[in-house]
Design a protein around this nucleic acid. Sequence first.
DNA 1: TTTTGCTGGTTGCGCAAGCAAGCTTTCGGT
DNA 2: ACCGAAAGCTTGCTTGCGCAACCAGCAAAA
Lengths: 158, 158
Amino acid sequence: MGDLAGLDADEAAFWRPLIRIATVLPRALEDQFLPETGLTITDYGVLVALSEAPEHLLRISALAATTALSLSRISRVVDDLTRRGLVEKRRCAADGRASNAVLTEAGLARLEAAYPSHLARVRASVFDHLSAEEIRTAGPVLARLAAALDAAPPTDDC
Amino acid sequence: MGDLAGLDADEAAFWRPLIRIATVLPRALEDQFLPETGLTITDYGVLVALSEAPEHLLRISALAATTALSLSRISRVVDDLTRRGLVEKRRCAADGRASNAVLTEAGLARLEAAYPSHLARVRASVFDHLSAEEIRTAGPVLARLAAALDAAPPTDDC
DNA sequence: TTTTGCTGGTTGCGCAAGCAAGCTTTCGGT
DNA sequence: ACCGAAAGCTTGCTTGCGCAACCAGCAAAA
């Protein structure tokens, strides 16, 4: 995906790499991660989100939001993780419609076991290629962009 | 997806936004683009790649490489675009196994018609949220990362 | 208290994408 | 000239994912 007119040189030099990274990075991470750990990147993301939540517990819908997955997808992923014993699903006492996903002991163990592999893939695909200086200068820009993307899901028409 | 230990603060501040962007950006672009133009982001990428090639012509395999799609996927996408008259497929004279995809007049017209919509989405999702300064400083870093990702597909074991 | 509407989640379905196996054409060795 | 190996797709099948339709529980009005 690339285009020239309409974007100035700096913008193009930002845009092209960005879109390339966005398409290539996820697969680069996934490819060896799954065989090594038996977890999808998606599975891993779900487990991480739970591990960082108080009580290792999150509403299904909250899980969807933090993992940027659709509700339907999260529903199935959680079911699958439940079947594998890594997560437990509890109907919420206060609100009978809602469910909470809870990380099990096995889930936490699995997550911790997967972490080194994940870290290795991240280093190999990203940080091994960048200097500390580069990381420090680009980080905040990425942070601002990520925040903007999260904040503006609807059609912000002028 | 996030992790804390193993990455220092700067790295984490680079990694988390990056992975978030990589997951959210593609959908943000796609969502309105398809209804507006009748083209998938993938379709669009293929047409752009062809439009930038000499003679508006590329080998199927080259197309796969530049769009970062699998050979099987490209095969079907090109077939589909051919059926829609946006691309033409020519068996290569020099090598009977190979095929070239060529952009048709209709394909070029369609691409040009889609461009404003694409540009608008890119601006709305990315450049409207960043200063020129930020774009200038982060661009080269992204470029280096993208280049590294493209260069190191196999298991670069130590 | 019953009805109407809303919210949280699940299920049916279709599409995008990759992997693995297959087919044809070419090339290198003999 | 011939045969095995490799290149360049193509096709069958599986998986990940989202949308839209749906169901259950809650809440507010009648």
